[in-house]
Each structure stands twice: as C-alpha cells, then as structure tokens.
Amino acid sequence: MDVLQTKKHWKLVPMLYLMIGFLLLLPVKALGEEMQLSVEAELPENQITKDAGYYDLKVTPGQIQELVLKVYNAGDKETTAKIEINPAYTGDGGTFVYSIDASKKDDSLKLPLSDIASTDENISIPAKSAADVIVKLAIPDEPFEGIIFGGIRVTDTQKEKEGTKESEEKDSSGFSISNKYAYTVAMRLRENNQIPDSNLQLKTISASQVVGRNAVKVLLQNPTPTIIDKVSYEAKIMKKGQSQVLFERKANDYRIAPNTNFNFPISWENKPFEAGTYDLMMTAKSEESGQKWDFKQEFTISAKEAKELNDKAIDLEQDYLKYIIYGAIAAAFLLVLIITLLVIYSKKKKKKRKKKRKAESQSKNKRRKGTNNGASKPKRKTNSGKRRPNGN
C-alpha cells in the first residue's frame, strides 16, 4: 500500500509544478500592466514640509511660480497622460478625493486650486523614459485666509481607452495617493501660519440608500479653509422622545478637507424604513486639534419616502413578528365575523322555523274549524207514537 500511494503522489508532482509556474507568472504580468506610469514631485525652495512627497508651499500675494512634476513611463510603448488640477473634497468614506465631482463643490469654497494652478491637459511620455509636467501658479493679489488644497491628477489615457476600471482612491501616505492607473500628487498652499479655527456643521439628515441598502445620511460641512484631521464619530438614532437606541455607528480616523461637505451614512441594518419622526444624537471629535462638536437634531421619514426606498432596497429583512401579529389580528377579526354571521344566520333560521311552525299550526286550526262547521249533528231517536209493551 505504501508503494502504491508513493507512486500516486509522484504522478501529481508535474501538475503541481505547472500550477506553481502559472501562479508565478500572473503577478508579474499584472504588475507590468499596472505600474507603467509613476510620478514624482520636484519640491521647490518654498516647500514647507521638506521630506514630503507632495507640494506644501508657502506663497505670497501676486506670486508667479512654475512647478515641475516628473511623469515616468516604464512601459514598452509611448503613452499619453491626461493632467487635471482639481480641488480636494471629502469622500463619504472619510478620505481626501481629488477627482472632479461638480456635485461635491461646496458653497463656502471661494478660491479653488483650479483657479490658481494650470498646466497642459495632455503630455506624451516615450517608452522607458520620463517627461516634465509644468504647473503654473498665479497667486491672487488679494491675500487669502487658511489653506487652499487640491491635487494634480495624472491618468494613463491608454488604460482609459481599454476600458480598465480604476480602484477607489484612498490617501494611504499622507497627501499623495494613487490607484491602478491614476496618480495624484496633493498640493497645499498657504500664505502664513495663522490657520483659523476649524468648524463642523450639520446641514441635513435624510433617508437614503448606500449600495442599494437603506441608510440615513447625515450631511456635514466644513465651511472653513482648514483641514480637520483624525476625526472620530459616534452617532445614535432614536424614535422622537424615546431613549431606546435603534441604530448607531462609530467611525475613526476621518480626514476632512477645507470648504467641503460630505455624507456620514448610518446603516438601517437591512431593515425597512418606517414612517415617523426620529432624533439624531451625534458627536464628532478631532484628536489632532482637540475640538469637539455635539449635534442633536430631529428628522422625519415620510410614508412616501419609506415605501419608495423599501421597494428599491436589496437584502431587506422582513419584520415577520409584525406580519404574524397582523395575521393573527386579521384571523381573529375573520373568526369573529364568521361567528357573528353564523349567529345571525342561526337566529334567522330559527325565527323562520318558528314562523313556519306557527303558520302550519294556524292552518291546521282553520281546517279543523271548517270541518266542524260543515257536518250536521246526529238526530236523537225518540219513542213518540210508540209505546213500550206494558208488562202488565
């Protein structure tokens, strides 16, 4: 048996080698495709954070400056990169996002980075080589307060043509972020070290959905030209006037960009929305600045909103206890109705039988009277005219 088993094992060895070789080849090819473009910021003399991989510049009113961003192409073919300069905003996941989204533009943002910095929209990079992207800064003559924050986004247009989907952006190393085929180098501008106090405001609360699942979205706003870092949240939802917590959420390490708004979603835990008025209690705290914001606000979910969202929701849990109770009530009502109808029917039937018996009895009495009135009485026999023989 041992020999046979050993032979069987040896037969599997070539197959194992083939599988290992196939797995080893896959990552090499993928990496070659994903890492064709890379970027590097050449930091100027007015750089504040000297060892950063992003631009952190101290500027003066009316200043004109050119920045150099190197773009490397590690591929075997020449490629074209698309260059965008966008203001930063806060993603709903608590990270900085630098892609264009007009709906995210906050009304408190008066001077976006795209109004100050400019560059060519496209640049060609030869194979196995690098090219310089020249970014021109034109600082307004009128001084600005706080921080102007955004990023230079470089996208491989060839990958866009191929229809390759990009992964979600997340700032994993400070301000410089990247995904599969797009790289962003952040840019932070300020004229002095006097940064105003940050603020956080609660704008609206609304019933909504996140990836098809019911959730309440709390719209928060940072109306100040400041970055609020290392923010933690604790939120609770109760029925209006009650203390029992229905839904809650905690989150840590959020980053909030200047002059932006964002949603803080609170999951409804796959439960259907119920129309009514609710209370939100929420606390936000920055571990970096020590600031704390407390919010308490009521909101209403209408019957129309609840129905529309429940009809569209996926993986919605049904409240079977509620349906059992409703079913029991309906069954009890139906049972009472049936019993009531049976009682009414029984009474009517009994009344009908009684009426029928009475009618039959009256009919019999009438027949009896009719018979008695129509028959002559029998005549009594008399011995008139006849005498009994005398015994004498």
Rank of each mutant, 00 (worst) to 15 (best):
F333S: 14
I20W: 07
A127F: 11
A74M: 13
S176G: 03
D294R: 06
Y55W: 15
I256N: 08
V97I: 15
E78Q: 13
K355N: 07
I338M: 06
K366L: 07
V135D: 07
I266F: 04
L12N: 11
A52I: 04
S302R: 05
Y181Q: 06
E248S: 15
H9N: 15
P126A: 04
S173R: 05
M35E: 06
A303R: 08
K356H: 10
V135K: 01
L12G: 09
A138E: 15
E162C: 00
E360N: 11
L189S: 04
E248M: 13
Q318M: 11
Q5C: 05
L109K: 08
I83G: 06
P225D: 02
K110F: 03
M35D: 04
T164N: 12
S38A: 10
K136T: 13
L25Q: 05
E308K: 08
Q297C: 05
D56E: 10
G212A: 07
Y54C: 00
Y181C: 08
I123G: 01
I85R: 01
R188G: 07
L23S: 12
D311E: 13
E305F: 03
E360S: 06
I152H: 00
P265Y: 09
L111H: 14
A215R: 04
L69N: 02
K240D: 15
P140V: 07
E42L: 14
K369Y: 02
Q291A: 15
Y345V: 09
A235P: 02
G241T: 05
M15Q: 10
S243P: 00
N390A: 08
F175Q: 09
F149T: 03
L335H: 03
K50I: 12
S172L: 12
A306F: 05
P27Y: 00
S208Y: 03
K369D: 04
K292G: 08
L69S: 01
E360Q: 13
E84G: 09
K358T: 13
